[in-house]
Lab assay of single mutants.
Amino acid sequence: VAMCDYCKLQKIIKETVRFSGVDKPFCSEVCKFLSA
């Protein structure tokens, strides 16, 4: 469980994407796409 980078809620992380050398955790595909 970690904080989703988009919705800022403590959730089970399903996706982690690396932006500019920094790992960004996301709880769902939706949050990942909305943050892009």
Score class of each variant (00 low, 15 high):
S20D: 15
A36G: 10
C27P: 05
L34A: 14
S20W: 01
V30W: 13
L9W: 01
V17S: 05
A36Q: 13
C31H: 00
C27G: 01
I12V: 11
R18K: 10
K8I: 04
L34W: 07
C31S: 00
D23R: 00
A36E: 09
I12L: 11
V22R: 11
S35E: 02
K11P: 08
Q10A: 04
K8N: 07
S28A: 02
V17H: 06
Q10M: 12
V30K: 15
A2Y: 00
F33K: 14
I12M: 15
K11M: 07
I12K: 13
F19V: 13
F33G: 14
F33I: 10
K32W: 01
F19P: 06
V22M: 15
F26E: 06
C31Q: 00
S20N: 15
D5G: 10
F33S: 14
S20M: 14
K32D: 00
V17M: 14
C7V: 00
P25A: 03
D5S: 13
F19E: 13
C4I: 13
K8C: 01
F26R: 03
R18T: 11
L9M: 15
F26Y: 14
I13T: 11
V1N: 12
F26H: 12
S28Q: 03
D5W: 14
K32S: 01
K11F: 11
G21D: 11
A2Q: 11
K8R: 07
K11V: 08
S35P: 00
A2E: 08
G21M: 10
V17I: 09
F19T: 13
A2I: 01
C27Q: 05
K8P: 02
C27L: 00
V17Q: 04
R18I: 08
K32A: 10
E29T: 11
Y6F: 13
C27V: 00
G21Y: 09
S28W: 00
E29C: 00
F33D: 15
C31P: 00
I12Q: 14
D5C: 08
V30T: 12
K24W: 00
L34G: 09
K11A: 08
A2V: 05
M3F: 09
S35A: 08
E15L: 01
L9S: 15
V22W: 01
T16H: 14
R18M: 14
S20V: 03
F33L: 13
I13K: 08
V30C: 15
A2G: 08
D23W: 05
D5H: 12
C7G: 03
C7W: 00
M3K: 06
C27H: 02
K14L: 05
K8D: 01
E15T: 10
V22Y: 13
K14P: 12
L34Y: 07
C31I: 01
G21V: 01
C4F: 02
R18D: 13
V30M: 15
I13F: 09
Y6D: 02
C27W: 01
I13Q: 07
A36S: 08
S35R: 05
F26K: 04
F26T: 03
R18E: 10
G21R: 03
D23N: 08
K24A: 06
E29M: 11
C31M: 08
P25V: 13
K8G: 07
D5Q: 08
A2K: 11
I13A: 12
S28G: 03
G21C: 01
